[in-house]
Simulated scan of single mutants.
Amino acid sequence: MAGLWTPGATTPAVTPADSTADSEKNTEFQENEKILSQDLLSPDQITDLLSEADMDGIQEKMKVFLNFKNLRTCLRDAILLDYYVSGFFWAKTMDFSINQHSKFMTLLDLLLHNLQTLHMSLGDSIKWLGEVMAEIGPNHSQKNQELHVFDVKEANAIIDYLKTSLFQHYRLYEFMFYSTREEIVIGTEQTVEVCKSADHPFPAPLEEGISLDIYSAFIDRLPTPESEGKVLDQEQSPQDLQPESEAAEADSLAGFTIDDVKSALARVTDEVLLNIQKEINEKLQAQEEAFNTRIEKLKKA
Score class of each variant (00 low, 15 high):
residue 5 W to F: 14
residue 6 T to N: 04
residue 16 P to K: 11
residue 20 T to W: 06
residue 22 D to P: 00
residue 26 N to F: 09
residue 33 E to Y: 10
residue 35 I to K: 08
residue 37 S to V: 01
residue 43 P to E: 10
residue 43 P to W: 06
residue 49 L to A: 07
residue 49 L to C: 06
residue 62 M to G: 00
residue 64 V to F: 04
residue 67 N to T: 08
residue 68 F to T: 01
residue 69 K to I: 07
residue 80 L to W: 01
residue 80 L to N: 02
residue 82 D to T: 09
residue 83 Y to T: 04
residue 95 D to W: 05
residue 98 I to P: 07
residue 101 H to G: 03
residue 101 H to F: 10
residue 103 K to T: 13
residue 105 M to E: 02
residue 109 D to A: 15
residue 114 N to C: 09
residue 122 L to P: 00
residue 122 L to D: 05
residue 127 K to L: 05
residue 128 W to Q: 01
residue 132 V to P: 01
residue 134 A to G: 11
residue 141 S to F: 03
residue 149 V to Y: 05
residue 167 F to P: 04
residue 170 Y to F: 15
residue 175 F to C: 13
residue 175 F to M: 14
residue 178 Y to F: 15
residue 185 V to S: 06
residue 196 K to Q: 11
residue 198 A to P: 00
residue 201 P to A: 10
residue 202 F to S: 11
residue 203 P to K: 06
residue 204 A to P: 00
residue 204 A to H: 01
residue 207 E to P: 01
residue 208 E to L: 04
residue 208 E to Q: 07
residue 209 G to N: 06
residue 211 S to Q: 13
residue 213 D to V: 05
residue 217 A to R: 15
residue 218 F to D: 03
residue 231 V to K: 05
residue 234 Q to E: 10
residue 236 Q to D: 09
residue 238 P to M: 05
residue 240 D to R: 12
residue 241 L to H: 14
residue 245 S to W: 11
residue 248 A to C: 01
residue 262 K to V: 15
residue 271 E to V: 02
residue 278 K to C: 08
residue 281 N to T: 06
residue 284 L to M: 07
residue 285 Q to S: 03
residue 298 L to F: 09
residue 299 K to Q: 11
